[in-house]
C-alpha cells in the first residue's frame, strides 16, 4: 500500500512528508522497544510506535527507515520533527491505540516484517 492508503485506513495526520504520499509501504513493525526494532528490522518498513524521543528518529536513521507512524495521539516535539525532516522522513500521527492501528492496517492488507527463522535472515 502507499502512504496515502495508510492515512486513509488509520485516519492519521501527516506531520511531515506530505509530498511523499505515493511512497510504497511494503511491511510494518510495531514496537515501543527500539532495542527490538534494531534487532529485528532488516527491511524498509513503517515503524509504528508510541515511544516519543529523539532515539526513535536515530533508530530509523540507522536502519534507513522512511516512515514512522506515532500512535496514541503522540505529537513529537520540535527537535524530534526537525531531525526527522532533515532525514526526509514521512511522519504520521494517529489518536488511536497501537492495537487498533495495526488491526486497521492488517485488515487493509499490510503485513508484518519477515522475522528471523521464518524465511528471513
Amino acid at each position: 500500500m502507499t502512504v496515502a492508503d495508510m492515512i486513509q485506513v488509520t485516519h492519521a495526520k501527516v506531520l511531515l512528508g506530505a509530498d511523499q504520499l505515493d511512497r510504497q509501504i511494503s511491511s510494518a513493525f510495531c514496537s515501543d522497544l527500539m532495542s527490538d526494532v534494531l534487532a529485528f528490522v532488516t527491511e524498509d518498513t513503517v515503524l509504528i510506535t508510541g515511544l516519543m524521543n529523539p532515539h526513535v528518529i536515530r533508530t530509523s536513521e540507522m536502519l534507513d527507515l522512511k516512515c514512522i507512524l506515532f500512535v496514541r495521539g503522540k505529537t513529537p516535539q520540535a527537535d524530534i520533527l526537525e531531525a526527522a525532516e532533515e532525514m526526509g522522513l514521512v511522519v504520521l500521527s494517529t489518536t488511536e491505540s497501537a492495537f487498533t492501528t495495526c488491526g486497521q492496517l492488517y485488515a487493509a492488507g499490510l503485513r508484518g516484517i519477515t522475522m528471523r527463522g521464518q524465511g528471513g535472515n
Partner: peptide, 15 residues
Amino acid sequence: SLGFGAGMGLPNMKR
C-alpha cells in the same frame, strides 16, 4: 525509558 535495555545489544552486534 528511552526504549533500550531489552538485552538485544551484544547479540545484535554479533549478528
